[in-house]
């Protein structure tokens, strides 16, 4: 379904040096698979998701989705098939427009954007029902501006917007990390139920190892732009947070040793 082949991406640090954010990443996802990605700061997790979504063009490598080679597609075209929720709650919605209008924009994905009315009566009812399903009481505030919502409410709305037209791939980049623990749990619960309801193929980045092992069907660890661990099935069931942490620190210490040797 999603195939990533030898993806490399570097960012210029200054005129002469580059920072390798993705180093030859190869990854293949089955239909319906739910992958969680962990890794330290700067490991390249966001860069990987941004390359898949088309925010960055990779330096080399290929990306195919359902047999379509999307490597050189512009971001907006990929969005027809890919739903996204960002770490920053401000990035997912238009603040000066109402909840209803925001949903209408998301719901018109893949349809003509002509001079048809933005929101019809029928659609309004559909949106209201969908928002009611979130269980946050937002259905009473359909005509309020999204800018008035809290971060958690916005993330829930963004999640709904990303999935209201069923995406072939859902990308979640630490989408609960800007929320307080209780709200984060709630949004995560929503995420889980929406993904299982529509059986969405999903990649979710998180810093919470417990979350990474509990949710989904497969867990990947990234370090220095490479995939250093890829767990699924029995192997993943046997994995504990402690073992993962030790692996994590080990992986980091290898780098330290390497650096020392070099010096």
């Amino acid at each position: 379904m999603l195939k990533i082949w030898r993806l490399t991406k570097s960012f210029p640090l200054d005129k002469f040096t580059q920072r390798l954010a993705l180093n030859n990443v190869t990854l293949s996802l089955q239909k319906g698979e739910f992958v969680t990605i962990i890794g330290g700061n700067g490991a390249g997790k966001s860069t990987l998701l941004n390359c898949i979504a088309g925010v960055h063009l990779p330096d080399s490598g290929r990306i195919t989705l359902d047999g379509m080679d999307i490597t050189f597609w512009p971001e907006y075209r990929r969005s027809l098939y890919i739903g996204r929720v960002f770490q920053n709650p401000l990035l997912g919605t238009a603040p000066d427009m109402t909840i209803e209008e925001n949903l209408a924009m998301a719901c018109a994905k893949g349809k003509s954007r002509g001079l048809l009315p933005g929101v019809t009566k029928q659609e309004a009812k559909f949106f209201r029902d969908k928002v009611a399903d979130l269980g946050l009481g937002l259905e009473k505030r359909m005509h309020q501006k999204v800018g008035l919502l809290s971060g958690g409410e916005r993330q829930a709305l963004t999640l709904l917007m990303a999935t209201i037209v069923r995406p072939r791939l859902l990308l979640l980049d630490e989408h609960t990390s800007a929320l307080d623990p209780a709200t984060a749990r709630r949004v995560l619960e929503l995420t889980r139920s929406i993904i299982s309801e529509h059986q969405l193929t999903t990649i979710m980045v998180t810093h919470n190892m417990k979350e990474a092992l509990e949710l989904g069907t497969r867990t990947i660890m990234m370090h220095e732009g490479r995939i250093v661990l890829d767990l699924s099935g029995r192997q993943r069931e046997c994995m504990t947070v402690e073992k993962l942490v030790s692996f994590f620190t080990q992986e980091a210490s290898i780098e330290v040793v390497e650096l020392k040797n070099r010096a």
């Binding site: 907006y76 969005s79 739903g83 238009a94 925001n102 209408a104 994905k109 954007r113 917007m161």
Partner: peptide, 18 residues
Amino acid sequence: LVLRATGQNPQMVRSVGV
């Protein structure tokens, strides 16, 4: 709608396929 959203959040507009 997407024209208005462009001035507020172009990232969001691109992520709804426009």
